[in-house]
Design a protein around this nucleic acid. Structure first.
Lengths: 178, 178
DNA sequence: ACGGTGATTGATACAATATAACATTGCGAT
DNA sequence: ATCGCAATGTTATATTGTATCAATCACCGT
């Protein structure tokens, strides 16, 4: 029996106060947009909220469209461009990230600071851990510089199995050896 | 005074002996498949040849389909699954790489050795430099380990401008220090 | 050579992801 | 009010990738 999963790191446990994550992310978004003179419109804010509400999991653009329809009073589902434009805005503002290796998006875990993110993405459950890639980013900067290459974007995404999906979990032996 | 520099790095100059790259890649592929007991069938070999012939540029799957039609005697264009299956095979064998950030593929530059590649991808011309990511890979291993994450695949792709496409007009590329 | 077996390819249809192009709406400044 | 611009709505389509099943080919043991 798993008593307390400290999640020993960047993967939040299922028991963490996720509502606080959502609130914090939305508040940070408001502040950031105000500072940047950008408009966090209702649509953009709702898309961000849906991203954050997903609970640190990657969400596809079309899943977002479905959720928008579900949470809309009239049940009207926007057309794809609406959500893609909102996502572009959020990514530009650093409030969300695009996960190229899985064609999906995720709300930013640290919307306050400029950062060079890298991601651990679970193949099973699509859980995503966002790490700060400081040292690694410097490594990439150096490599680009050495090659005469002007770096614009760095995509660092690691696919694998998160702590809750990896089979060598010691806390649940009954399903093992299956 | 020759402005025809050797590209001082991983981006091959336009004057390099590219036919040798293609031949070398195909030879290495033959050897590697023989060793692995895998079958480098005519279709797979042709796809690899087209990838290599592209000259260190990213190629999309549908571009490959067009080229297959062009180089086919009957001009018959295969259906998408044919080329995707060939690409899957080549990627599995380490003879080609998938570039997730641009939905494209590239022939492996170093098909001989097991490696943990990382890529510099030009946004303008789609030129690709494949680097060996030794130190960076260890960095990712450590991060995954610390998070209790089982690493299966690492995607490291840097988008930007290659030496021939960067607007940098003068010959002073070293002043930058980020 | 013969037939069985699994890998490979062909062929059809479709799913999933993303964008182009243009119309409409809202909103602030003049 | 109305002009200008950003944002959103709308329609259609482009691009990328798979599911499925049929046909064919290579290999292997006999």
């Amino acid at each position: 029996m798993s008593s307390r999963l400290r999640t020993a790191g960047p993967f939040p446990g299922p028991d963490h106060d996720h509502a606080a994550c959502v609130t914090r992310g939305l508040d940070a978004a408001e502040a950031r947009c105000a500072e940047a003179g950008a408009r966090l419109t209702p649509l953009r804010k709702r898309v961000l909220e849906l991203l954050l509400a997903e609970g640190h999991r990657a969400v596809g653009a079309y899943d977002l469209l479905d959720r928008l329809a579900d949470t809309d009073d009239g049940g009207k589902r926007p057309a794809p461009p609406a959500v893609y434009r909102a996502l572009d805005f959020l990514v530009d503002q650093g409030l969300a990230h695009r996960l190229a290796s899985v064609n999906a998006f995720i709300g930013c875990a640290w919307p306050d600071a400029a950062h060079r993110p890298q991601f651990l993405i679970c193949r099973d459950c699509r859980a995503v851990a966002e790490l700060d890639g400081g040292g690694l980013a410097r490594n990439l900067d150096a490599a680009a510089e050495a090659a005469g290459f002007t770096l614009l974007d760095a995509v660092v995404e690691v696919g694998g199995l998160c702590p809750r999906c990896r089979p060598d979990e010691t806390s649940d032996p009954d399903a093992a050896s299956a």
